[in-house]
Design a protein around this nucleic acid. Structure first.
Lengths: 231, 231
DNA sequence: AGAATTCTTAAGAATTTCTTAAGGTTTTCA
DNA sequence: TGAAAACCTTAAGAAATTCTTAAGAATTCT
């Protein structure tokens, strides 16, 4: 499963960078490497980075400071790597600006869990505002907190994928999403031979939310383009 | 952009207070500092405070307890700062009265997001819902102060973890929490390989609070998404 | 040391998701 | 205009995932 995230790994030891890269790639996360702070800044400009893993014990501290500056502007979570033996004060100072830390030697699974946790939090915080509001369109209601969809007051039981499709469309009433759009935004991976998969789910959704699935009132097709939720 | 809010930051470390102040000021929020609970009480009398950010790990615990008492009267939201390494139970006790918490090291922007979120809620709700109030849902009762759960008036004995899960769910009736959400909010660390751990606790809770655990009335599953407490 | 709590493992049940395939509808363009 | 191509709908069953439950091991508390 590919995730739409890329992580910048900053460490002066190549073996560590490579090891982390292997584990993150296995998670479907793109990895960009940098061996010091200076290089990290360049990479941050070149690539869209969603999280930084940073070894505190590197020769060139100025680069690290600069990295932090950039984070302030870009709001990217930072996970710090540090050895237990390291100077506590120095590490502590850095930690004030960090989101999480892992001490070396570290369990790769734990690092991955923390990376995922940060990415999740980062994403949900970003979309926090509108993702909690109850949506309503002509009697079709969606409650993002309770994950409940209702048609004219009657609860409808949707599966997770069905729910996510409805949520996507209802968040942008009237906007047409191609099948690829839908697949990529719901499954969070590139669509390949997935046209019919989406179509089948559309059908199932109609079966549940439409009074007359053959003449849908809410979930309409736009021929040759995609689907949309009627405004 | 100036906001009509002032926040009291209580921490014994000056650098942390200053760092927080810088970020909040940038948001247009007024900041009042206090280095311990005693001082916090004075400041609460002197200034109109709308929210408190409180470090749990401070030398003088009595002052903190007093701060909480004041909050109870004044209905001010509290966000707790805690280090991961800290004694979980001690932190937990405090958190019961808190509205949100952030673990150190923290991302300043995340702290700001949570501050804004609390202030928003505080304003929109008008009268802030006290998290020490006894919760009641269809005969299921939770008393956060006494840490007692009752089903139709009959006390149920929950273990600490069980209690925290029930409390989390009851604080947000109807809202669905994924297993990862639950793990991270109850255990306060990222979850990996913890899916079944939570599931087992859910089962134990049902055994205790449900009349018919196979057809739960309170603690419901939302397939593929998580669990929730029925509204 | 004994009791209570928490975690791990594993097997089976329930539910969801995907694939395949056939038939219908709309568009294209000869 | 009419036939071909592209696109959409529908159905059914296989595959995969998720949930429940139980039992016992490991850990923590008293």
């Amino acid at each position: 499963m590919t995730k739409p995230f890329s992580v910048l790994v900053v460490d002066d030891e190549k073996e560590i960078r490579d090891a982390i890269e292997i584990y993150l790639k296995y998670e479907g996360i793109t990895v960009v490497q940098a061996c010091d702070g200076i290089e990290a800044i360049e990479k941050l400009d070149e690539h869209p980075i969603h999280l930084i893993i940073l070894d505190v014990m590197m020769p060139r501290m100025d680069g690290i400071a600069a990295t932090f500056k950039i984070r302030e502007q870009k709001n990217i979570p930072i996970i710090i790597l540090s050895a237990k033996s390291e100077d506590t004060d120095k590490v502590l100072g850095l930690q004030v600006g960090a989101d999480d830390y892992v001490t070396k030697p570290f369990n790769p699974l734990e690092l991955i869990a923390r990376v995922n946790s940060q990415l999740r939090r980062y994403v949900t915080l970003g979309t926090y505002e509108d993702s909690n509001k109850i949506l309503n369109l002509n009697g079709l209601t969606l409650d993002p907190e309770a994950k409940i969809v209702e048609v004219n007051g009657e609860a409808v039981k949707l599966t997770p994928i069905e729910y996510r499709i409805v949520e996507l469309l209802m968040n942008h009433p009237g906007r047409v999403f191609s099948i690829q759009d839908i697949y990529e935004r719901v499954w969070k991976e590139p669509s390949y031979n997935a046209e019919n998969t989406v179509a089948v789910h559309i059908r199932k959704i109609r079966e549940k939310i439409e009074i007359d699935p053959k003449n849908p009132r809410y979930l309409k097709v736009v021929w040759g383009i995609g689907y949309k939720m009627e405004k």
